[in-house]
Simulated scan of single mutants.
Amino acid sequence: MADLIERMRGLRSRWPGTDGVAVFNRVYLAVTEEIRLRIDAGEFPDRRTAVTLDVLFARRYLTAVDRAESGGRPPACWRPLFQYRRHPGVRSIQFALAGINAHIGHDLALAVVDSCAALACEPADLEGEFDRVGEILTLMEERVREDLMPGPDALEIADPLTHLLGSWSLDRARDGAWSAARLLWNVRGLPDLAEEFTGGLDRAVGLVGRCLLTPRA
């Protein structure tokens, strides 16, 4: 985890603060540092499982960054964030939630499957750590909304952005990720079906991300 944190800190120093990917990176760095502190404090009974899940989860974000930075195509779930990262009509809160959507909606399910394969266990064996990480993510999302949401003078109740951001739920995304992970694990012996489902999940999460990044007029 120390290597992952250093990598994210390095990205933070490279990108301007207004960059959309940098906004998400700051949020995710804070989450990862918080999880590491709690693991070190013994709040996760199964340290090995918690570290494995967190590391494999974070690597999927960093792989998307590497692909984009090298001129390749990141997964569809991440493309809207990289495409709109410098759009002046998109607010920081939108960038943050679009990144969280990509990482939770797509990457988390695959990270659970990766972790089960690495640890030779079933998804049910990871459920406790999955839920503990989810509780931290929920707290961080609340903090993101408090810190990045425009104030009442800048954002009226009737503003479309209020409706847009209120329509996305981290809890629903987590529930969907858990269901997707269980399904993918159960069809792991059917690679064509697993690939088809993973591709559809990737595209669907990308569509949600594109909606979250709708520029304000």
Rank of each mutant, 00 (worst) to 15 (best):
A2P: 03
D3Q: 10
E6S: 10
R7S: 02
R12Y: 01
R12H: 12
R14Q: 10
W15Q: 04
W15A: 02
P16A: 10
G17W: 14
D19H: 01
G20D: 00
N25G: 04
R26A: 12
T32G: 05
E34C: 09
I35M: 08
I35Y: 08
D40Y: 03
G42P: 06
E43G: 01
E43C: 05
F44K: 00
D46W: 03
A50E: 00
A50K: 01
L53K: 03
V55Y: 10
L56A: 11
L56V: 12
F57V: 11
R59L: 15
R59T: 13
Y61L: 13
L62T: 06
A64V: 02
E69I: 00
P74K: 07
W78F: 13
W78N: 05
P80I: 02
L81R: 01
Q83L: 09
Y84E: 09
R86T: 06
Q94T: 03
A96W: 04
L97T: 03
G99T: 00
I100T: 07
N101D: 10
H106V: 01
L108H: 09
V113H: 10
A117L: 15
E127S: 07
G128W: 03
E135R: 06
I136Q: 04
E141I: 02
E141Q: 10
E142D: 10
E142W: 02
R143V: 09
L148H: 08
M149Y: 10
P152D: 07
L155G: 03
L155E: 09
L155H: 10
D159N: 09
D159H: 10
D159C: 08
H163P: 00
S169K: 01
S169F: 04
A173Q: 02
D175T: 12
A177E: 09
S179W: 09
A181V: 12
L183P: 09
L184F: 15
V187K: 13
L190T: 14
A194Q: 14
A194R: 15
E195Y: 08
E195L: 11
G199A: 15
G200P: 11
L201G: 05
A204K: 14
V205P: 02
V205E: 00
G206T: 10
G206V: 01
G209A: 05
R210F: 12
L213W: 08
